[in-house]
Design a protein around this nucleic acid. Structure first.
Lengths: 194, 194
DNA sequence: CTGTTAGCGTAACGGCTGTTACGTAACGGG
DNA sequence: CCCGTTACGTAACAGCCGTTACGCTAACAG
């Protein structure tokens, strides 16, 4: 056996390079050569670890979701249900550099879901899971859950992701502080502010 | 003078072709040849009326916003402030074919605002105007406006546009009926449901 | 009727893209 | 020590893109 390399780590490195390129140049600016440059190598390495561009993108997306889930599950436990709900929601907003990068990539994949059946199906799966998670959290946050809890969740998620998209496209207009205040205002309206 | 043609109409026709292409193939699928095909002509006509692709896109966007405003101003007057607020908000959701097309184009330009300073500035202008309009409408809908009215508006807009983006990307999961019910649930929460 | 000019189809060009093929260097098993 | 395999840089390729140049056609002024 020749030179030994950790394939998973290489793929993770290249996925990170994909994030950076998307974060800087958008999804149309994402070329194999740009990824190679961001990853400090040539296209030779990129194509060596991924069959084609689609596989590269799919893996970068997979890693993104894995990282998001990882962050949520790393949140401190023990707090009350309302604190926990708010903490999870804040993970969906681009409040620091890492989340800004993750959210940007997420937003591009969201729009790309229009026009690609594969991306749309994948997005639908993730979204349903996200809705389910938040339904549980919101229900737990209520002493007596309202009858239209499902609509409250849909609205909450739409508000959160709408804010996230705005923060990605026009971060100057939607700074982290405004995002948090807007979310808190909505939580207060819902009656589940900690 | 040779053959006489209405330039504005030609440009409007080609802008409609842009909408259709974006609606079917997305912004990356938007090529001059695709626009020509959708417009029932060749690239010769397209480049004859627009200096370059950027000008074509800018005009298609301009027409889109003009049409959206036109629809809003065509709404029946005379209803109460809460009916009016709801009617305007419903114009922001893809509830029929035309709005679906308009919203799709809008969503693509929204994401494209990330990565292009020109598109971002333009979006920022439009967005501020939209926020301003809704602030007035929501204030009028309240008997006694809350202290954090601005945050209520931000949340309302984020919810609306979040729903719109979801409806564009996964219309099957977010049918018109769910959009309206979610919006109404939020309006009820705000205490401004007609 | 004739000349001029806008309208626009056709085609060519250079640049960039994803993909593929090839060459080389380095490492580990025998 | 040697050899096979893996890692990956380099380069060529075909396809599509926006842009540009060119040429024909049809309509109006005179």
């Amino acid at each position: 056996m020749p030179r030994v390399v950790d394939h998973d780590q290489r793929r993770a490195e290249l996925s990170l390079a994909v994030w950076r390129v998307v974060g800087e140049r958008g999804l149309d600016g994402l070329t194999l050569r740009a990824v190679a440059e961001a990853g400090g190598c040539t296209t030779g390495r990129v194509v060596h670890y991924f069959a084609d561009k689609e596989a590269l993108l799919a893996h970068a997306r997979e890693i993104m979701h894995r990282r998001m889930t990882e962050r949520i599950e790393a949140l401190p436990v023990g707090a009350g249900p309302r604190e926990r709900l708010r903490a999870v929601l804040l993970e969906g907003l681009p409040l620091d550099d890492e989340r800004r990068l993750l959210t940007t990539v997420w937003a591009y994949f969201l729009i790309a879901a229009h026009g690609s059946a594969v991306l749309r199906a994948e997005h639908d799966r993730r979204h349903a899971s996200w809705i389910e998670r938040l339904t549980g959290l919101l229900r737990a946050a209520y002493q007596r859950p309202p009858a239209d809890l499902d609509l409250r969740v849909r609205g909450l998620v739409a508000l959160l992701d709408g804010l996230a998209v705005y923060a990605v496209t026009t971060p100057h207009t939607y700074p982290p502080e405004l995002l948090v205040r807007t979310l808190d205002s909505h939580l207060e309206l819902l009656g589940v502010l900690p």
